[in-house]
Design a protein around this nucleic acid. Structure first.
Length: 311
DNA sequence: CATAGAATAT
DNA sequence: AATATTCTAT
């Protein structure tokens, strides 16, 4: 009589690991608005018709005022009970913040994004589930290793907590929002983590098992029509040459197929945005920061970037 | 030197 | 509380 939790589990697994479904994990954090604002385009998400050239001030050297204001076009996603909302668009204005050292808004992990995260981890296996790999597998443009690492850290704590209590976590259902706040002693990420079921192997430390599923499928599909904006965020501010998993599939010029995740991407000075900040550092390309569809309200002046509205 | 992980800061 | 940033170990 205690196997009722195996249900949601199986269900979850069923719809989860479809490599083919996962492969095209190419979501972008950059919203169309952002693309327009920056004059950048997503090779994956080319607009059907040529959009009118927005009065983009073209990159102006390092003008601090180049702060992309958040012109958030709220998706008007109806959320249950959201009263209020973000009504006003805060035109930040004001002062010119030193755009130098642009700081990117905090990434908001939505259930969808988290799902991708968990899926990636599940496919990689705990052993290979390291930030970098996860990040690559997720293929979420804009997502950084640091973002994933931070989330991973917290996720691990969550898992530990669950192991401690062994009771579940069940939520599952999954259908949408659930006002379930369930257990978790002293926990708090309920809603988020609980939204996504946890793979069994995660809870079992010692498990000789395991091969998970197949290795991977040769990524070839990348042009699928799926307008699903995943999330948007990020910029960069660190002297860390981040790689940009934008085009993964496509036959490698090497003629050799390699696992996308294992592929050594090293640092590719991919300069793709229309922000040729030539302030002296050709490698420093800060980009994207703005938000759209946001429900995140500001809390304190801290600009928050929110991901997709809801599922 | 780069990355993972924990610790710490915001 | 949720993320980011920093520090340390590998």
């Amino acid at each position: 009589m205690r196997d009722d939790d195996s249900n949601w589990f199986a269900k979850w697994e069923e719809e989860l690991p479809s490599p083919e479904e996962l492969m095209p994990l190419s979501q972008t954090l950059i919203t169309p608005d952002l693309e327009r604002a920056f004059g950048i385009r997503n090779p994956n998400n080319p607009p059907p018709s040529a959009p009118p050239p927005p009065p983009v001030p073209s990159q102006a050297q390092n003008t601090p005022s180049s702060q992309p204001n958040s012109s958030a076009e709220f998706e008007s996603s109806e959320m249950g009970g959201n009263g209020g909302g973000s009504g006003g668009a805060g035109v930040a204005s004001g002062g010119e913040e030193p755009a130098r050292t642009l700081k990117r808004p905090r990434l908001v992990w939505t259930p969808q994004l988290h799902k991708r995260f968990v899926d990636a981890v599940a496919h990689l296996g705990i052993k290979n589930a390291v930030p970098k790999t996860i990040m690559q597998l997720m293929s979420v443009d804009g997502l950084t290793r640091e973002n994933v690492a931070s989330h991973l850290q917290k996720y691990r704590l969550y898992l530990k907590r669950m192991q401690g209590i062994s009771s579940g976590g069940g939520n599952g259902g999954g259908s949408g929002v659930n006002g379930n706040a369930s257990m978790a002693p002293g926990g708090s990420d309920h809603d988020l983590f609980a939204s996504t079921p946890v793979p069994a192997h995660f809870l079992h430390p010692g498990r000789p098992n395991s091969d998970h599923f197949l290795p991977f499928v040769p990524v070839t599909a990348m042009q699928h029509h799926h307008h699903h904006q995943m999330a948007a965020v990020v910029g960069h501010h660190h002297p860390h040459p981040q790689l940009r998993p934008q085009f993964f599939g496509t036959s490698p010029p090497n003629g050799q197929f390699e696992h996308p995740f294992l592929s050594r991407q090293s640092q590719q000075p991919v300069q793709r945005m229309g922000t040729p900040v030539h302030s002296g550092n050709p490698v420093m390309a800060s980009y994207v920061d703005d938000l759209e569809s946001a429900t995140a309200a500001t809390a304190n002046g801290r600009k928050v970037l929110t991901l997709f509205p809801n599922c």
